[in-house]
Design a binder for these strands. Sequence first.
DNA 1: TTGACTGTACCGTCTGGACGGTTTATAAAA
DNA 2: TTTTATAAACCGTCCAGACGGTACAGTCAA
Lengths: 206, 206
Amino acid sequence: MTTKEVSPDQDVPPKKASKKNTRSNNSRVAVLHAAERVVQKLGPGRLTIDAVVTESGMSKGGILYHFPSKSALVEGMINHMVEESNRRVAQLVEQLEGEANPTVRALIEVQGGSWVEEQSLSRALMAAAAQDPEHIGKVRDNKRLFVERMQAESQDSDDAILLWLAADCMAINKVLNISCFTDEEEKRLHARLLSLVDKLSAKSRT
Amino acid sequence: MTTKEVSPDQDVPPKKASKKNTRSNNSRVAVLHAAERVVQKLGPGRLTIDAVVTESGMSKGGILYHFPSKSALVEGMINHMVEESNRRVAQLVEQLEGEANPTVRALIEVQGGSWVEEQSLSRALMAAAAQDPEHIGKVRDNKRLFVERMQAESQDSDDAILLWLAADCMAINKVLNISCFTDEEEKRLHARLLSLVDKLSAKSRT
DNA sequence: TTGACTGTACCGTCTGGACGGTTTATAAAA
DNA sequence: TTTTATAAACCGTCCAGACGGTACAGTCAA
């Protein structure tokens, strides 16, 4: 509602469909990564187009060619990161085939991994929350999806969800730089989470 | 390091010690509440002094008298909300005297309560994260305090901490408007958290 | 030729904050 | 009690810089 029409559904603003390795898409992704770095370095409140220009080395015109407005840029960040996160989770779920509660396991694993610190969804989320609360809906929808999967995977789905929430909170704290745990504590808590999932799986198997 | 010296330790900018009902302190608190409302209505990225001017009805000069910079305002919000949150938790802990794991219980109770939606620490936190990442240290310190209390209260302190994290995450999600739960689910999860604390207490008592 | 840019110049708006002036509370002096 | 002094509390305006965004002429590889 802010800007008219930016990129209706997909993660691609120019005309053609998403051929992944076009020159256009490569620099597009480069812009998104630069934006992430800006948020990481300066905080979500100082994500400006000019900052992305500096960080990416691209010209302002170039940036605005890919993302016709700042809102579109933020939307792009959200989409990109949701997709990346989902890709990782899906990959882990696949590896965990056969085990009980694969989704919770995968979510906890991904959120405990180092990826969270580098390019986190939370970071884009902060940027969005700071400037374009509208785009957050997508994140909520995505979360809901996982909730429903967990509910399908377990009778004690509430317990699974709580474990996921705990992992999520640790990830958010980390990104917001308010994590009050030592590395050791963090590892221990993470391990404990996984072992609790095991317990949960064992219980529901009986 | 941004502004020279604002309010070194206390939550009071003028000279004298904190007589709670001075005219000054009243309008000071009024400004803070107005700032909270602004963040609630417009999002942390649109917290501006002028917005607080409009919301509070006070003049810009008046605002800047109490908080000589925007950074000081955000710092004030953080302090005020940390204190308010701690007050509530302390009050609940007192009520729970005798029960096991009082701190976790109190934290979960407070974070599940309606207070979170009205004037939450998270909101100030968002504002800080958006603009002045420096002030976040105080929040981290405060969290650490609770962690250590929980560790003192229980042998299974890690489990207690995980429960707290789950509750925290629900609260954050709510405030960021990315909570993917229905009201019913939320209540159920909250109740489940409390019952899990009971289990924890029972286990450690044996 | 076309798509993918670069580079520069520019505009309107918003924002933090400085500043000078005015009102109000308080308390001492008359 | 009234007057006066003084500082705190507050007002309203102004300004420089930042920011989002436009426009447009030119470059350069595919």
